[in-house]
């Protein structure tokens, strides 16, 4: 497979995931602010700033900018546009259903951004971006051969997912000392369920822990759960498996791709043999920043090995 094509597939996977994540986080944050703003405006502002930083948006950003500002790399519109631009370059590799689906999502979002009442409609718009992400994943799985191209898209999705969840938790889940945050307005009952919702994890969490939402357990679930598809551990383990499958797909026994597989594998086994007490004693944010650093390194090595030679 051409390096340029693999590169476009990988980033298409990442950008679709990024758009879906940003839409979800933005929507749950807006819901949270509705509850908090009247009672404690200062806390509401802190919540908003936290979400903004987790989505890599600049200061003085409003919700519409996160959704629609195509010039802002952290925005949903920008991620969707970049996913489509990558898809357009590989149309003969992906299925036409995948292309059409992404194309429709792009045009629907543009239309929504031009509506006079776009702010009032924002919840509906964000909901449709999230479900577009889900159905695109379904179309991809349902129409594409499980060849090298599919592996690249999946790998992009998993890496992005791990990165986004870790980032969200690192920014929002800690106070200055790195301990799980307890002091924000509204208390744990507001923040931690919101973080779970931001990863589509609240219901899954409740099935495992029917009692009250507890910060320690949330960290355990979002970082280390073995079975939840959006936990950092699960995503990294999947990424390592996909990196291994790519080595096989490229018929490259002991060669270049092994280094990439090892980089993901090292991080995967670290997460596998860590428990939540280790995480908390290291400090949640420092721990997650290390994870993000290693993940970024593995992704960087992947790009050097396969795309930029």
């Amino acid at each position: 497979m051409l390096s340029r094509v693999a590169d476009a597939l990988y980033w298409m996977g990442r950008y679709v995931e990024r758009a879906e994540h940003a839409a979800r986080v933005l929507e749950v944050t807006r819901q949270l602010l509705l509850d908090v703003r009247e009672v404690d405006p200062a806390a509401a502002e802190l919540h908003w700033q936290g979400a903004r930083v987790a989505l890599s948006m600049p200061e003085a950003t409003d919700a519409c900018a996160v959704a629609f500002d195509e010039h802002e790399p952290g925005s949903i519109a920008s991620s969707v546009a970049r996913a489509r631009e990558n898809a357009r370059q590989v149309r003969e590799v992906i299925s036409s259903e995948m292309w059409e689906h992404l194309n429709q999502t792009y045009w629907a979002l543009r239309e929504a951004s031009q509506q006079p009442a776009r702010e009032d409609e924002l919840s509906a718009t964000l909901g449709s971006v999230v479900s577009a992400g889900f159905s695109w994943a379904g179309v991809t799985d349902g129409t594409m051969r499980r060849g090298e191209g599919w592996l690249w898209i999946k790998l992009g999705q998993e890496v992005e997912r791990a990165d986004r969840v870790a980032r969200l938790l690192a920014v929002r889940g800690s106070d200055a000392s790195g301990a799980p945050a307890r002091s924000l307005g509204g208390g744990d009952n507001v923040l931690w369920p919101t973080l779970l919702r931001g990863a589509s994890a609240l219901e899954a969490y409740r099935k495992v822990h029917p009692a009250r939402v507890d910060p320690r357990r949330v960290v355990d679930f979002l970082v280390l759960d073995r079975e939840f598809p959006r936990s950092v551990r699960h995503c990294v383990a999947q990424a390592a498996a996909l990196a291994g499958a790519l080595v096989v797909a490229n018929g490259d026994g002991g060669g270049r791709g092994r280094g990439v597989e090892r980089a993901f594998g090292r991080l995967a086994s670290r997460l596998e043999y860590t428990d939540v007490d280790d995480v908390l004693s290291a400090g949640l944010a420092p721990f997650l920043l290390e994870v993000l650093h290693e993940l970024g390194g593995a992704s960087h090595q992947l790009q050097r090995t396969y795309f930029l030679h």
Binding site: L2, S3, R4, A6, E92, L246, N250, R256, H309
Partner: peptide
Amino acid sequence: ARQMGVQLVEGRDLTVKDGAVCMRSTRG
């Protein structure tokens, strides 16, 4: 390209090495 079963390449996919034209692929 699809009908012939050959790669569709752009200039940036190609490079010249040791006097031969090569395409950059995930296999090298």
